[in-house]
């Protein structure tokens, strides 16, 4: 064993101590509160998505003639297929929720401020990737919602001035939903987006490791002497515990509210009530409130503002030091999002 380890170390000149040194960042004490671990939660769920996604890809056949049948096979016939599919679906839902909550936490604690502006932007790109993965994901089932959701989504991109038509063609692989569309969605969902996310996550974590986690102090903590604790093993154990809790929640959700299958996609019949997944309710309602290009451009503008928020915030604070404007804007934004989501959920059209 020793010689083998020695042989290996000659060729891979890192040992456990070095690796630990590299990753064992000091963790601020506020992270002993579990709600500050919302960054680790989407990361864990992302791993669940990769594993269950790879498993599902063993059976999934991305073509209009076979997609629905293969999903049916997974759901009804393959051993534990319904469970794996349920995990994938519910982990996606929880992941989006966790990413959003993580982002809110970062926003309201001001953790995006200098020098962490870039990491906010990377985080925002991760949110966009997650949403796109959600969109392409439910398009793969090839049920009515998949087909018409994809069609509607593609036509929304069409509304973008100048490049819209080009983007739509790129997305659908043609003027309309066709034989090539499903495989495009599949590659986006199963390869392009995950790889992009892995790279973004690496950068995200590296920046955190280099800059350290934002330190917060709470009133009752003020008399505590030490501000940090070890990542190994203390914080890691917390994350492992959270991971197990997530697995239990996912298993229960997958069992109690299993991933169902709607009617097979029918290019000739648009269903009476057509709604995207819940995380697109905001955008969907927004599109109904404003017409075509206005809605798309305004949505794009809001997204862009969110992307650049650290700089906007800095600009506000330069002008008015000590301003709480960002918090109020944040609260307003959250309220609008909740209202639009509830509105969309409550009405049929």
């Amino acid at each position: 064993m020793t010689s083998l380890a020695g042989w290996f170390r000659e060729r891979f000149p890192f040992d456990g101590d070095q690796l630990r040194e590299l990753t064992n960042e000091p963790v601020p004490n506020h992270l002993k509160r579990w709600w500050f671990c919302l960054g680790g939660t989407p990361a864990y769920l992302f791993v669940v998505q990769i594993i269950t996604g790879v498993l599902l890809a063993f059976y999934y056949k991305p073509a209009p003639s076979t997609a629905y049948e293969s999903v049916r096979y997974i759901t009804e016939e393959a051993a534990f297929g319904w469970y794996i599919r349920g995990l994938h679906k519910w982990a996606a839902t929880l992941m989006i929720a966790a990413v959003v909550l993580h982002q809110l936490r970062v926003f309201f604690t001001g953790a995006y401020r200098k020098p962490r502006e870039i990491n906010w932007m990377i985080g925002f790109l991760l949110l966009v990737c997650t949403l796109m993965a959600g969109f392409t994901g439910y398009s793969l089932v090839y049920e009515q919602l998949s087909y018409w959701g994809a069609t509607v989504g593609a036509n929304i991109t069409d509304g973008v001035p100048l490049v819209g038509g080009f983007m739509k063609q790129l997305l659908l692989g043609g003027e309309v939903y066709n034989q090539n569309t499903l495989s495009r969605f599949f590659i986006l969902h199963g390869a392009v987006l995950p790889v992009a996310m892995v790279m973004l996550i690496i950068v995200h974590l590296t920046i955190i490791r280099i800059q350290g986690v934002t330190e917060l102090k709470f009133k009752e903590q003020e008399d505590e002497k030490e501000g940090h604790f070890n990542f190994f093993p203390d914080h890691l154990l917390t994350e492992i515990g959270i991971g197990l809790v997530l697995m239990i929640i996912l298993s229960v959700l997958a069992t109690v509210i299993p991933a169902s299958m709607g009617a097979k996609a029918d290019p000739l019949v648009t269903p009476e009530v057509i709604k995207p997944e819940w995380f697109f309710y905001v955008a969907f309602r927004w599109l109904k409130l404003f017409t075509g290009t206005v809605a798309i451009l305004s949505m794009g503008f809001i997204m862009f503002m969110m992307f650049l928020w650290p700089f906007i915030d800095a600009w506000i604070r330069r002008r008015k030091p000590g301003s709480e404007a960002s918090v109020w804007i944040g609260i307003l934004g959250v309220l609008v999002i909740i209202c639009l989501t509830v509105w969309e959920a409550a009405v049929a059209h």
Binding site: L55, E77, A79, I84
Partner: peptide, 14 residues
Amino acid sequence: ACAGVAGRFLYPAK
């Protein structure tokens, strides 16, 4: 156990 489930999923269904 979870890995076992995954393995069973990949093994031909019937």
